[in-house]
Each structure stands twice: as structure tokens, then as C-alpha cells.
Amino acid sequence: MSFINYSSREINCKLVYYGPGLCGKTTNLQYIYNKTKPDAKGKMISLATETERTLFFDFLPLSLGEIRGFKTRFHLYTVPGQVFYDASRKLILKGVDGVCFVADSQMERMEANIESLENLRDNLTEQGYDLDKLPYVVQYNKRDLPSVVPVEELSEVLNSTRVPEFEGVATTGVGVFDTLKALAKQVLTELRKGG
């Protein structure tokens, strides 16, 4: 849910990175954090386990600049990818303005991708959202690894609605900002429609 504050002249939007465990959601946020100027970002918060697996969420506030006199702020969240943290994932989707599904391109993670995407749809429905009507992008991450599935195949299975899709290597930043920009643009365009 975008929050427009006429008093401080700010627009705040919530973007959620979703995907199976170890697909690189946190790595996307870490790369964005590392490459953003200090005055355009807040602290990155990771609620993670001792082994650095996301326990509840990662949070990164970003300022993109002004649009018609309003400061645009994006709050980036990741969900915990591991299957058994489903209750937490549902909570993080509350009030979401845009979703990025990060898929793991490796052959052996295909099933996990499909399961996570179905879980995303189900959890959104439960919160009263429809993925087909939300600003939404897909990133095929880990393109640098040897056993990756061809993009066409990934696209066919994971992007049947043909939303903007990007190849990514989140560890080195390939595709990370392209993905974010595409999603942020969709969210702002939605705002223009009034909602």
C-alpha cells in the first residue's frame, strides 16, 4: 500500500523480493545497498539466523529522488525463502506495492522455483491481492553457474504472464538494478492511475 504524506511531501512504496531458499534475494538487496550513495539509503536490516539464513526479513529503505515535488521512497523487503517460514512470508506481503520473484536458474532448483511461485500466488490471494494485477517482475538469478536452465525454458515455466524478466548474477550485480528499476517504474505508473 503506497503511503502518500502530503505534510512531508513523500510517497512511500513497499517492494518485496520473493523466491525459494538461497536464490539470492538477500544478495540482491546487499548489492543495491553497497552500490547506493549514502544519502540515498538507510540502514540495511537483516533479521537472520546465525548461519545467515533470513529468519524474518531483510529491510532496505531507498530514496530515489523527487517527482513533482514529492520525495519517492522505496522500502525493499525480502522474505525468508525456506519452506517452513511460510507464516512469516505471509506477514511481509501485507501492504505490498510490487513483487520481484527471484528464481534460481540452476536445474536442480527448478522444482523449488515452481513451489515458491505457487506459494507466492497463494499467499497474495490470502491477503486479497492478485499477482496478475500487481506490479511484478521476474529475475533469473545465478546465470554464471554451470548447470543453468536456458532462459526460454525458465520463462515458459515461471513467467506465463510475460511480465518483464531479467537475467541476473546478484553476487556481481548483473541485472540487479535493471530488475529494481523495472519494478519501481511499474509501481509509480500504478500510482499515476490512482492507485
Partner: peptide, 10 residues
């Protein structure tokens, strides 16, 4: 309206 907005006026 797809996503409800929270709008706060001055």
C-alpha cells in the same frame, strides 16, 4: 483501484 492507498493530508 488495485492497491489501496494510505493518504495523509497536512
Amino acid at each position: 483501484m488495485l492497491t489501496p492507498l494510505l493518504v495523509m493530508y497536512e
